[in-house]
Computed example of a mutant assay.
Amino acid sequence: MEIKQIYETARKRMKGYCRVCNECRGEVCAGEVPGMGGAGTGASFRNNVEELKKIQLKMRTIHDAKSPDTSIELFGEKLSVPIISAPITGNSFNMGGALTEEEYVNAVLKGSISAGTIGMTGDTADLSMYITGLEGIRNVNGKGIPIIKPRENEKIIENIRKAEEVKPLAVGIDIDGAGLITMALKGQPVGPKTKSELKELVESTNLPFILKGIMTPDEAEIAVQVGAKAIVVSNHGGRVLDHTPGVANVLPEIVDAVKGKIIILADGGIRSGVDVFKMLALGADAVLLGRPIIIGAYGGYEEGVTAVLNKMKKELLQAMILTGCKDIESIDRTKIIF
């Protein structure tokens, strides 16, 4: 399936909710939450994209990195590329509902697996959507990761128990969803967590635990202290707080604080395999991909998701060849100017 066709189809299916711009940078959709835009002025959304643009790659062509290995191992699973489909729910109120929640979940999970990687499922005010995500993970033999909204701990632990039944690779919460307007509008407010509350959640399960929504080194250190297996450096796609820095801007200091102590994933503004390379060079172990996956699913279901991921894998591979990187571990800050 051609990327151009995917975009054209997604544009029709998401009309009125997402323009499916040729360059997705959050300008025309600023303030459209619910919807696909960023909070307030959309500055946080734009910062995610613009901070990545500032980073430049150092081209090298005298070396023997002719057939780079793009694979990594994560949560006991070998992935052909260090890209995970991000946890996204709410088709009806954010994306227009041309796909049912079940269709979206299956497209993301199966399309990700077809591309040699995995997907995450999300949570929203309608519990049935979380359950749909779990059923999707069950249908792919546990090769997925459910992420839960930061509700009261008692409710989160109930949802962790439901997750354990489908034997996923890991489980987590997106703390960056604290204060999310789409939850409040449905009468299910979410909020921040204390260190002791996080420790209770991590210790409530034997599954690897992920904290999504870390934007400062001190909170990354807290994630380590409470025993989390991984963090996701993320501002929730710029959808919860206006005027935050871009993820690429804060990632280096977080990496300097906790690299080697915890798995570091990065999420925000990634639009190409070159952007993936940049995040890895800044110190991320892998990245999460959000809006491009939505476009892939709406533009071509499972095949569309696979096509988007394969395109990014090819772009990452080319970037590795032209910077002299034999494998993912070879990608570091010496390969970029930032």
Rank of each mutant, 00 (worst) to 15 (best):
240 V>N: 15
123 D>A: 08
133 G>T: 11
73 E>Q: 12
94 N>C: 12
136 G>F: 05
301 Y>G: 08
258 V>R: 09
206 N>H: 06
323 T>D: 08
296 G>Y: 10
162 K>W: 07
109 L>S: 03
79 L>E: 02
43 A>R: 15
134 L>F: 02
35 G>T: 13
166 V>E: 06
168 P>N: 07
216 T>I: 09
53 K>I: 05
309 L>A: 05
332 D>K: 07
216 T>F: 03
84 I>T: 01
173 I>E: 13
324 G>H: 05
96 G>Q: 12
203 E>S: 14
158 E>W: 07
79 L>V: 03
301 Y>H: 14
19 R>I: 15
297 A>Y: 00
67 S>T: 10
197 E>P: 00
220 A>M: 02
303 E>L: 09
311 K>S: 10
12 K>Y: 07
145 I>Y: 09
227 G>H: 00
127 L>M: 07
215 M>R: 01
203 E>P: 02
63 H>M: 03
109 L>I: 07
274 V>E: 15
63 H>P: 07
113 I>K: 00
76 G>K: 03
183 M>Q: 15
121 T>N: 09
123 D>E: 06
208 P>V: 02
188 Q>M: 13
94 N>S: 14
51 E>C: 12
172 G>L: 08
37 G>P: 14
299 G>W: 08
210 I>C: 09
118 I>R: 00
288 L>Y: 15
142 G>Y: 05
219 E>Y: 13
196 S>W: 00
39 A>N: 12
71 S>L: 08
275 D>S: 07
39 A>Q: 14
278 K>Y: 11
13 R>P: 01
53 K>R: 14
110 K>E: 13
165 E>G: 02
46 R>Y: 03
205 T>S: 12
191 G>I: 01
78 K>Y: 00
165 E>F: 05
299 G>P: 12
41 T>A: 09
134 L>A: 09
224 V>G: 12
94 N>A: 10
321 I>P: 02
272 S>M: 12
246 G>S: 06
186 K>G: 15
9 T>A: 11
41 T>C: 02
149 K>G: 15
334 T>I: 04
133 G>Y: 08
237 G>V: 09
31 G>I: 11
101 E>G: 09
76 G>E: 05
124 T>C: 14
184 A>V: 11
319 A>P: 06
212 K>V: 04
276 V>I: 12
330 S>T: 03
7 Y>N: 13
294 I>D: 09
196 S>T: 10
334 T>K: 15
273 G>F: 06
